[in-house]
Design a protein around this nucleic acid. Structure first.
Lengths: 328, 328
DNA sequence: CTGAAAGCGCTTACAG
DNA sequence: CTGAAAGCGCTTACAG
């Protein structure tokens, strides 16, 4: 491997001059030419470790994700990656396989690697998270969950669910099942549920019942089968698209036609919801754009610029085939 | 930040002794106790850059992926990640957004970052790839595409497609459309097609026609619409599950019942193919297991152990609802 | 504009 | 078992 010392010797100058050339310091025309030539010939590129050792920082942004096999995650990552590339930062992706413990562990590991900033696609924010995030002195941005102590970019779950609730009511559904997830997940488990509730709560002649399942489609199938049998709703509002996919399968297994016998809505905007038949009415979050924004924000934070404490990403209700309009 | 010098001073020993303690050199019981205490108290952890600068290598494995939003990619990454964690290596994921140019660029960038090894989830292997992979002196493993100059782990596309072809024939389909992709992609575009051809080629009274589309479901919808209209096959064999999803949508748009009026098969084994109705007959590749294997292999290569030049991953034909058995 | 020197935080022969 | 010293490849005041 060729080093700065080699370049200096070959060009007949001092190492410091080569360094200045590399970092845009003042160097004479002639010296530039000499160094340029040697750099070209050798294909020299500076050793990142040596640079980081001096600089005590890197241009790496670490992103911690709970899982890799999720539409929301991959879209967000694509957005982050895209933007970071433009900003000339490098992205390190750290997967926790849904383990909270690893999430904490990864926060420390990334800090140890001297990343310039961390984007955390959070599922929950526990005491341990808060402690870890405070201990490491690294700029941090939460995506998907809010916490008053940190900057965050959140999907407007409450508002989106509220809009969805209004839409469902406008379709005159009066016997509604809401199939949500654990309340430990504030964004998906709590905000979506509450947003939906806020829209349908005071409505007269409307019955709403709340159920809970896991994030897995498989579990949603079984749960929906129960719901259909015991409650016979005209619509099942699902907290995620994967759950909606499971519900759709359950409807089929029960011999129910969607949307005639049972309407179904999702949440998330996975592409496949539009590809299948019936296509599923869902709430689309702009994950990729959110990723872009997150990347810009964390870089601003790294550069000590001010950014808003909390930002909401956009959403859109995608009205498709899986919801029937009732005529009562 | 506390450094090895701080620890040494606080423990009343030399830096070299602390280093020996850290790296398992011979240190007396008593010294160990002293150093241990100080390390505990300070929460000291060695500076990775300084270590790497000396060692001239890292324990990082770089993985280059063409895209993040694909089932195959995410499953493979999960497998790699999982295994690498056990092996105490760190994973860097580098996304190229399907740009061949960036693929080459990333090879050099990873080399510059002194990764210990590179796993390349390849889509094509061009001359430039070969040149780059030779230039950097880093162990490299190709996944998904084969090339005689490098070690590779390939999904047995040819054999799998052959088996699928036999299955299709066994269901007595005699008017077959094969919907493939560009031949520039050796694995998906060529091997799957050829494997399928090898099974159906000499079959009498069977007509097979080959078509081509992109990897996008959207394009597959349009292409399938054309195929249905012009060729009226009894089955469409699709080179990927995403294409099959598009074909299914097209069948619906054409008013055809699947599988009664038109059978459809996919390739890949995406979870959603089992979740929708009708569920899609497809070929499942064990991506996660392949990822595990890839991780083990690259670490072996890093450690100068011998590994097979080429390995085939496993596959399985998943027989589901989207294929009808004909009675001629 | 340019060079010599010190230092970033570690590891590794080399003596003792 | 332990310490002093050199060196990994860079950058950055400091002189000139």
């Amino acid at each position: 491997m060729v080093t700065i010392a080699d370049i200096a010797k070959m060009a007949g100058v001092a190492k410091s001059t080569v360094s200045r050339y590399l970092n845009g310091g003042s160097v004479s025309e002639e010296t530039i030419r000499k160094i340029e030539k040697v750099v070209q010939e050798t294909g020299y590129s500076p050793n990142k470790f040596a640079q980081s050792l001096k600089a005590k920082k890197t241009n790496i942004i670490g992103t911690i994700v709970p899982r890799l096999d999720s539409y929301a995650t991959s879209q967000t990552l694509i957005g982050i990656d895209e933007q970071l590339r433009d900003l000339e930062y490098q992205l390190i992706i750290s997967n926790t396989s849904q383990s909270l413990e690893r999430e904490i562990e990864n926060i420390y590991i990334l800090a140890q690697q001297k990343v310039a900033g961390i984007i955390l696609l959070a599922t929950m924010v526990t005491e341990k998270h808060i402690k870890a995030l405070h201990e490491i002195k690294v700029p941090i941005l939460l995506v998907g969950q809010e916490n008053e102590e940190f900057h965050s970019l959140i999907h407007n779950d409450y508002q989106a669910a509220h809009s969805l609730g209004e839409y469902v009511l406008a379709q005159r559904h009066t016997r509604i099942a809401y199939l949500g997830v654990t309340k430990e997940d504030i964004a998906v488990g709590v905000k979506r549920r509450e947003g939906f509730m806020s829209a349908v709560a005071d409505k007269v002649d409307t019955e709403v019942k709340y159920f809970e399942t896991s994030f897995k489609s498989e579990d949603a199938i079984h749960k929906t089968l129960e719901i259909i049998e015991q409650y016979k709703p005209s619509i099942i509002v699902c907290a995620t698209d994967n759950i909606a996919l499971g519900a759709l399968k359950a409807a089929y297994l029960s011999g129910l036609q969607v949307p005639k016998d049972l309407s179904i809505t999702g949440f998330g905007g996975y592409e496949v919801t539009d590809l299948i038949h019936p296509s599923i009415t869902t709430v689309k979050f702009f994950y990729k754009e959110a990723g872009n924004f997150a990347a810009k924000s964390i870089v601003k934070m790294v550069n000590k610029e001010e950014i808003d404490q909390m930002t909401f990403s956009k959403y859109e209700i995608l009205k498709r085939e899986s919801v029937d309009k009732k005529n009562n």
